[in-house]
Design a protein around this nucleic acid. Structure first.
Lengths: 221, 221
DNA sequence: GTCTATAAACAGATAGAC
DNA sequence: GTCTATCTGTTTATAGAC
């Protein structure tokens, strides 16, 4: 692991970043290797050299996403793999709210996230071998962790269908604001999706989360 | 408007149905005109003849969607354009719940809806001229109607940002179950998305809707 | 209106010079 | 490792026979 990036590594990373952006924007089939090479400031042959071809680059992009997002998810929700121990329901609920808030900030707020979210969504809609990496490296661990937090906050079993589906519905809300951004901006009369808009979205999603949690707590009595 | 479909009209419709399915499944760029013609049981040249080319077919698919979905939406939520008059909050709430339930049944439940939903989502993610038809013919009127129902049920103003964003979040929940179907099935251990699964999804979404409505009613006091 | 044949452009992959 | 030139197959669009 050299500290200074070699020329080879720079080209490799530039190709991944270009692939991520273009695959996310226009899809795998909609993007030509010529475009990717041009965006990365290199030549077409380097894609075959570094990744064995266009599909190899797609896979490398998926690996990049799981690595990069793992760090974000860790910050948002604590250890993904272990320690489901939480001292109190209140603490778990606070962590859940904070986690969802950070997910909104990332998915709906950060412009760089658009390409990542779109890349993942395209994989979900039209699975390729790259989806396996994303599922086991990102999708499942994040979902499991959110279910743990939900269970700790409500007392419901973390592996019940009810909890799992509710957590999916939470994620779905957030993701939709990024997918349908074009239409939502038009309907809301927004000219951009800046920090004001992200705040409004976060407020809506958190209000929903609290409403659903409260309803569950009441019905559990 | 002839009562019996002519040969020309049959070919036209077959091309639209094939285009809808294939564009939805694999995207516009991922689908070749050869595939579409083969799926429609006709030849490549007929696409140019009937629709001026591949893009023209895409536009015709969007028009087909707005027309076909208009009927579904009408059944689910009453007149889209006019009569926002509703006699009581309870009636409005019942109509809202029923409307969302039918949207779930359609979007998440009916297999034929998968291609339509995916077609629309692809347009949202990567807008083409076809998005304009879908936005003004389907997306906006449905959203406006849901906001009217929400306003009538809660007393909140139908054109407030809060109501509009909350309605978006409701739609997002439902849509996500269709987008992420592959990953959700894996996480839930489902081998298919049949009526049992659709019922569970509907139950989750309706429970969320009721929780959010209840929270709003309480805070309004 | 339908269909075959073909044109013109473009795709991804690769050989070989440097 | 990088890059140019090129190979091979596929794409959309279209001309013209029927």
């Amino acid at each position: 692991m050299p500290e200074r990036a070699t020329s080879s590594e720079k080209t490799r990373e530039a190709l991944i970043r270009a692939g991520l952006r273009l695959f996310g924007e226009k899809g795998f089939d909609g993007t030509s290797t010529r475009e990717i090479a041009a965006a990365a400031g290199t030549n077409i042959a380097s894609i075959a050299y570094h990744f064995r071809g266009k599909e190899g680059l797609q896979l490398a992009c998926a690996e990049f996403i799981t690595t990069a997002m793992g760090g974000v998810a860790y910050h948002a929700m604590g250890n993904l793999a272990g320690n489901p121990e939480l001292s109190s329901r209140e603490e778990a609920r606070a962590l859940l709210v904070k986690g969802v808030e950070m997910i909104v900030q990332f998915i709906a707020g950060r412009p760089e996230a658009a390409e990542i979210v779109q890349f993942v969504l395209r994989e979900l809609m039209h699975p390729s071998p790259a989806l396996d990496h994303i599922y086991s490296g990102l999708f499942e661990p994040v979902h499991v962790r959110l279910c743990q937090l939900w269970a700790a906050a409500t007392g419901e079993p973390a592996d019940s269908d009810e909890v799992k589906l509710t957590v999916f519905s939470l994620i779905g809300q957030v993701v939709y604001f990024r997918i349908a951004e074009a239409a939502i901006m038009r309907r809301m009369g927004w000219s951009e999706t800046g920090s004001d808009q992200t705040r409004d979205i976060a407020r809506t999603v958190i209000a929903n989360l609290n409403a659903i949690l409260d309803a569950r707590m009441r019905s559990a009595r």
